[in-house]
Amino acid sequence: MKKIQGRGTLEAVDGRLDIVVNINGADKALRVAPGEYLLDALRREGYKGVKRGCDNGDCGTCTILLDGKPALSCMMFAAQAHRRRVVTIEGLGTPDRPHPIQRAFVETGAVQCGFCIPGMVLAAKALLDENPEPDETAIRRALDGNLCRCTGYVKQVEAVMLAAKKLKAAGRRA
């Protein structure tokens, strides 16, 4: 995915910036404070799957996909996402039709308390987009910015391996 060119200059009016962000495939006009983080703007707009964790780029629970790459929404201003493509967990699947990665997380029992899982699923999607057949080392490396405090990471690694297998069998990309 490519960024839209020519983003120009954004000037605050009455202490607010008007930005346009493509969220989960639809352009959305947002009015944000200039110093507002993308995490806060997304949550205010109802994308609650973007979780607030450390607020310092350490835990990965606020992970989104920005132009297809995983990014920490707590570490960037909302205005930096102006005219860029954001995918949150809400854009990946629905309760009725979960994405194969989400299904694999459920099937392997990797979800646990669920708090870190949206970020982990999106990090896994980015990995599988880039490397459809990752080994365990590559999976652990790709998920090393997403902290889970429930237990270890065995089930999540299994989930990503299962998702890779299912996607390959179905002949589709993540």
Partner: peptide, 13 residues
């Protein structure tokens, strides 16, 4: 975060 930002520029070069 409370900031005094008023504008964002996205230069082309």
């Amino acid at each position: 975060m409370r900031t005094n930002i008023r504008r964002f520029c996205f230069p082309a070069s």
